[in-house]
């Protein structure tokens, strides 16, 4: 079977409604001969923890449970469907809290957009800006980073801007493309007027950009190969067969 077909099938298993089930899954169902789905509708007890934030399990979880049921060969009938759905309608154990206060627009947005797109530019696939990566980087630094990381980030951006202003014509975003690239190469290597601390800042920025980009839908599924349910591990697998790196960590 061509790889594209395999990938497509797994995609279906994972993220599409599987009430109808694919023929492939029906075969598996026959093989496994499973009879029942041990899922009841007991309500979720209250949680001791009080998460201040969390992800929002959405309807894709409903599809997921149905598709696992299907993959396991559990027949989804009029009788079992409400039971399966009830598994998805109960509040998650890590409930999403109220949206945090929307922050003021960050004055560094333009600068971070420019840097992120320079690190991961648009090619035959979207780049950093199109995938919302700059906003994620600022979100990440505000919400997830340690105090140390945040200070490093703030200092590094300020230094880059200061260098652009004193040694070049003006703010970084107003420089010519060549000047920006030349400056970034120096920053990347920690060369004068930058130092090791500045290099470490750029490394932090790059890590945040890569996290934002390669976990975005386009970064994970178009730029790289996305295989949420591999089905098995194959240790002798020619690179050419997939042609690009996997987006989910191995």
């Amino acid at each position: 079977m061509p790889l594209a077909t395999i990938l497509y099938n797994y995609w279906r298993i994972c993220y599409q409604t599987a009430w109808q089930g694919s023929p492939k899954l029906r075969n598996r169902a026959d093989t496994l001969r499973l009879r029942e789905f041990s899922c009841s509708s007991r309500s979720t007890p209250t949680l001791m923890n009080e998460p201040t934030d969390g992800f929002v399990p959405d309807l894709s979880r409903r599809d997921w449970i149905a598709s696992v049921a299907s993959a396991l060969g559990l027949s989804v009938t009029a009788a079992t469907l409400p039971m399966l759905l009830s598994a998805c309608n109960t509040p998650p154990s890590a409930p999403s809290p109220a949206q945090p206060d929307r922050p003021q627009p960050d004055p560094r947005t333009a600068l971070v957009e420019q840097l992120a797109e320079m690190i991961i530019p648009q090619t035959d696939t979207p780049g950093a800006i199109e995938t919302g990566t700059p906003a994620f980087v600022l979100h990440f630094m505000r919400i997830c980073a340690t105090t140390q990381e945040r200070e490093k980030f703030d200092r590094g951006l300020a230094k880059l801007e200061a260098v652009a202003k004193t040694q070049q014509a003006g703010p970084f975003t107003t420089l010519t493309s060549e000047a920006r690239t030349a400056l970034l190469h120096k920053l990347d290597r920690g060369q004068t007027p930058f130092d090791a601390a500045d290099k470490a800042f750029f490394s932090l920025l790059k890590s945040a950009v890569l996290l934002g980009y390669y976990t975005s839908e386009a970064g994970a599924t178009q730029e790289l190969a996305f295989l949420p349910v591999p089905g098995a591990y194959r240790g002798n697998f020619p690179f050419a067969q997939v042609g690009k790196a996997w987006s989910l960590p191995g």
Binding site: R61, A94, P228
Partner: peptide
């Protein structure tokens, strides 16, 4: 609840 949630659906 964390299973099969693709990375782009996780806010952080």
């Amino acid at each position: 609840v964390g299973e099969a949630v693709p990375p782009w659906k996780l806010p952080h």
